[in-house]
Design a binder for these strands. Structure first.
Length: 221
DNA sequence: AAGACGGGGAC
DNA sequence: GTCCCAGTCTT
């Protein structure tokens, strides 16, 4: 089977699966502010989406925009974020981002090279900004999307996702679709409930027919 | 390339 | 008790 066929099979099956299995989060609603989108992505780092969902709405109510965050006391932000884990880092990152955004009158640079210069703007969040704010077909490539792609297509060569050209290329191809955002969300939701790190549910998987991991492990359903 | 950051939920 | 989670920066 050609790679392009394998890719379109994955896209269509995942989008179909997503229709009836998607998770609903506040940060996926339409018409969010840039602030709301970026806050969600920082809070989600290395943290389960379900955990973030418990405090995200309250956070946005308490700190509705960059100004309010910039005027807040760092310790208070830390305290609020404590249940989410990595709270000192997240509080500090949000505070620094707020400082940058206030100083730049709330404007985000459109050039990727300039975007990368923002404090704590790593590859993942920069992709998320381009996808959700600038409507570009960029992947939400985290360890979960990486795992799904690697099981289906085969493992990467380098340990660091960001520097593996094979994985980067695959991720770009899989989200090169008119419903790019939904493809990324579908993969994330799919990775959380079916293609889990531990005990993946291969016998309930709509991709197993073409999945390399499924073949290699001779899974019998 | 490896370490640090981290509480909470799943198993 | 152990593993894992919409990463990123520092050493």
């Amino acid at each position: 089977m050609k790679e392009t066929e394998k890719i379109s099979f994955m896209q269509s099956r995942l989008l179909k699966w997503f229709e009836s299995n998607q998770r609903f989060f506040s940060w996926r609603q339409p018409n969010l502010s840039n602030y709301q989108i970026i806050i969600s992505e920082v809070l989600l780092q290395r943290t389960k989406a379900e955990t973030v969902s418990k405090l995200y709405d309250q956070f946005i109510t308490k700190y509705p925009d960059w100004d309010s965050l910039h005027n807040a006391i760092l310790f208070d932000i830390e305290t609020f974020l404590r249940p989410a884990g990595l709270y000192k880092q997240k509080a500090s990152r949000l505070y620094m981002l707020a400082k940058y955004m206030v100083e730049n009158e709330g404007k985000l640079p459109k050039e990727r090279s300039e975007l990368n210069k923002l404090p704590f703007m790593g590859q993942y969040i920069a992709n998320a900004v381009e996808l959700q704010i600038f409507n570009k077909r960029m992947p939400l490539l985290d360890i979960n999307m990486a795992r799904v792609l690697e099981r289906y297509f085969g493992p990467r060569k380098l340990s660091d996702i960001r520097y593996d050209p094979y994985l980067q290329d695959l991720a770009l191809k899989i989200v090169d679709h008119s419903r790019s955002k939904e493809v990324s969300w579908a993969i994330l939701d799919f990775s959380a409930s079916i293609c889990k790190k531990r005990n993946p549910l291969c016998c309930s998987c709509p991709l197993s027919k073409n999945c390399l991991y499924f073949k290699l492990h001779s899974i019998d359903c």
